[in-house]
Design a protein around this nucleic acid. Structure first.
Length: 183
DNA sequence: AGTGCGATTGACT
DNA sequence: GTCAATCGCACTA
């Protein structure tokens, strides 16, 4: 990555209430081809099939029985890989996000992969959705130039813990994880 | 058909 | 700081 990289915004629309909920992506983790910690590592299954769609499709899955996590597929058709969206900086629709999460504090609204899906009302029906075309969930460059990008090990894994594949906007208060990993 | 296990969170000591 | 909740899915038989 370079300092000229543009920030990316994730936007949720077509909700029952006519609102757009959006946030700037401030933290991600990569799960590239051949990564033993990636869900695609075992080959295509009913759960992970969206990882094998072309770049820019949503892979939504349930973790620990409770949380829904959002990934973006990152390779060509038939190749399984993705990027986990770990945190957003809230931009639009903040009151609606506060209702979805039953939380007021802006900092707690979308800091964490399982929290941001609740804030944006993302569910399993969005699994496989194309995020690069008009639809209920969209990715878009937001014009903001990214500041320095921090790199660290990924969070919550039991394998491949040495790989530095977590990326975040350094100093951004909406980044999740222990301070040690987000200085 | 049964078992084991998380790319987490929130509640609690 | 610790720890249990919770369920879809992958894996074994």
């Amino acid at each position: 990555m370079s300092a000229a990289d543009r920030c990316v915004t994730l936007a949720r629309s077509e909700l029952p209430v006519d609102t757009v909920l959006s946030g700037r992506i401030v933290e991600t983790e990569a799960y590239p081809v051949g990564d033993a910690a990636g869900h695609a590592y075992v080959g295509m299954t009913p759960r992970n099939r969206a990882l094998f769609l072309s770049r820019g499709h949503a892979y939504v899955y349930r973790a620990y029985g409770a949380s829904l996590l959002l990934n973006v597929s990152s390779e060509t058709v038939g190749v399984g890989a993705g990027v986990l969206i770990r945190a957003l900086e809230p931009l639009e629709g903040i009151p609606a996000m506060q209702r979805n999460r039953s939380v007021r504090d802006l900092r707690d609204l979308t800091r964490g992969p399982g929290r941001l899906t609740i804030a944006l009302d993302i569910d399993l029906r969005l699994d496989g959705a194309d995020l690069c075309r008009t639809g209920p969930l969209r990715l878009a460059r937001d014009g903001h130039v990214a500041p320095e990008i921090g790199v660290s090990a990924r969070i919550g894994l039991s394998r491949e813990t040495d790989k530095l594949l977590r990326f975040y906007l350094r100093g951004n208060p909406f980044v999740s994880g222990p301070k040690k990993l987000s200085p």
